[in-house]
Simulated scan of single mutants.
Amino acid sequence: MDALHGHWGVAPPKLGDFERWTTLPTFQPHLWQVAWHVESGRVAGQVKPFINEEQNRRRGETEFISVGAPWRRRGLARALIAKALHAQRDAGMSDSVLGVDADNAHDAARLYESCGFRVTRRNMVLRKPLVG
């Protein structure tokens, strides 16, 4: 959660969220790639891919990508993404998708494109405050 602080759409977890998440079919820790900072005992970075069996496709999803501030700009995200893609391939997937906030302060879209991902669809969220 520390690494995702301030990112669009991220909110602190509510009581019971973790327990609910562990019951979902997309909870697949055998595919996860996690880097630990041994000295501090903290997670330095993570990628939590999953395979959505309900889609009936050979497509994995590379999601929950984050690297803590002390470990950014060292190639950790790229290495974890590469390992996540290999894990999906080894599980029989032929391609992988992900979603990204194009305005991400860390230029995540550029990183993902450098890892071989290509933009295939863009979405826009519009907001208007209602006064009165």
Rank of each mutant, 00 (worst) to 15 (best):
Q55A: 13
R89N: 10
W8A: 04
I65H: 06
L76D: 09
G6T: 07
P49I: 05
Q55S: 10
D90I: 03
E63W: 09
F50L: 07
F18K: 08
R20M: 03
G92P: 09
S94M: 09
R89A: 15
H30D: 12
R89H: 14
F50Y: 14
S94R: 13
R78L: 00
F50M: 01
W8L: 11
H30M: 08
T62V: 15
A82S: 14
A69E: 15
T23G: 06
A69S: 15
R89D: 11
N52Q: 15
L24I: 00
Q33M: 02
T22C: 14
I81Y: 03
D90C: 06
G41F: 12
I51P: 06
V67I: 11
A77S: 14
R20D: 11
R74A: 07
W21L: 07
M93H: 06
F50E: 03
Q33H: 10
R20A: 11
R42C: 11
N56H: 09
V38E: 14
Q46F: 05
A91P: 12
Q88H: 15
W32C: 01
P29M: 03
K48E: 12
I51M: 02
A91Q: 04
P70A: 02
E39Q: 13
V38R: 08
E63R: 10
A11G: 01
A69V: 12
A11R: 08
G75E: 01
Q28T: 07
Q33N: 10
R42E: 15
V43Y: 05
A69L: 10
P25K: 10
N52E: 13
K83F: 02
P70D: 08
R57K: 15
F64R: 09
H7C: 09
I51Q: 03
R42I: 00
V43K: 13
V10H: 08
R72I: 10
A84G: 13
W71L: 00
P25C: 04
P29F: 05
P12R: 06
P12K: 01
H7A: 12
Q28E: 05
A11Y: 08
S66C: 14
W8N: 02
A79P: 02
S40C: 10
K48W: 02
R42V: 06
R74G: 10
T23F: 03
R73V: 06
V38Y: 04
G60R: 06
G92L: 07
T23Q: 15
E54K: 07
G16L: 11
M93T: 08
A11Q: 09
H30V: 01
F50Q: 02
I65A: 02
